[in-house]
Amino acid sequence: MTVLQTKPLSNIQAELLKLYANNLSDEDLFEIRMMLGKYFAKKATEAMDNVWDKNNLSEQDMINWTNEHNRI
């Protein structure tokens, strides 16, 4: 079976493919998933902190948002 690749692999895809050469234990696989999850959670938190700072938001803004009723 021939597979046609329409675009090159991204850098993350290429790096993850290297892992496929190893048969990881379930524990190692779980740890890698946790590391990836923590990494992306950290990036999301940093992005939100930047938005928060850029817009001079306060804790009261967050409280106000939680009390808004936006359904029609």
Rank of each mutant, 00 (worst) to 15 (best):
M1H: 03
T2M: 11
T2E: 11
T2N: 12
L4M: 04
L4E: 01
T6Y: 14
K7L: 15
K7F: 15
P8G: 10
P8N: 06
L9A: 07
L9G: 06
S10H: 12
S10R: 11
N11H: 12
N11S: 13
N11K: 12
N11R: 11
I12P: 07
I12G: 09
Q13A: 08
Q13F: 10
Q13T: 10
Q13E: 15
A14P: 02
A14G: 06
A14M: 04
E15N: 04
E15G: 09
L16K: 10
L17V: 01
K18Y: 01
L19D: 01
L19T: 03
L19G: 03
Y20G: 07
Y20Q: 07
A21N: 06
N22M: 09
N22H: 13
N23Q: 13
N23F: 13
N23G: 12
L24Q: 06
S25A: 08
S25I: 02
S25D: 10
E27Y: 01
D28T: 07
D28M: 06
D28Q: 13
D28E: 14
L29V: 05
L29W: 14
F30Y: 15
F30I: 08
F30K: 14
F30R: 11
E31S: 15
E31G: 11
E31R: 14
E31H: 15
I32D: 06
I32R: 08
I32K: 09
R33L: 15
R33F: 15
M34V: 15
M34L: 15
M34I: 14
M34H: 06
M35G: 08
M35A: 12
K38W: 14
Y39V: 05
Y39K: 04
F40W: 13
F40S: 05
A41M: 12
K42P: 03
K42C: 06
K42M: 12
K42H: 08
K42L: 13
K42E: 08
K43S: 06
K43F: 06
A44G: 08
A44R: 05
T45H: 11
T45S: 11
E46Q: 09
E46F: 04
E46T: 04
E46H: 05
A47P: 02
A47C: 09
M48R: 00
D49W: 01
N50F: 02
V51C: 05
V51I: 01
V51S: 03
V51A: 05
V51W: 01
W52R: 04
W52H: 01
W52N: 03
D53H: 11
D53M: 05
K54T: 08
N55I: 03
N55H: 07
L57T: 00
L57K: 02
S58K: 02
E59S: 13
Q60V: 03
Q60D: 05
D61L: 07
M62S: 03
I63L: 11
I63C: 09
N64Y: 01
N64H: 07
W65N: 03
W65H: 07
W65Y: 06
W65G: 03
W65C: 03
W65K: 00
T66D: 07
E68L: 01
E68Y: 01
E68C: 03
H69Y: 00
H69L: 07
N70E: 03
N70A: 00
R71M: 00
I72P: 08
I72K: 10
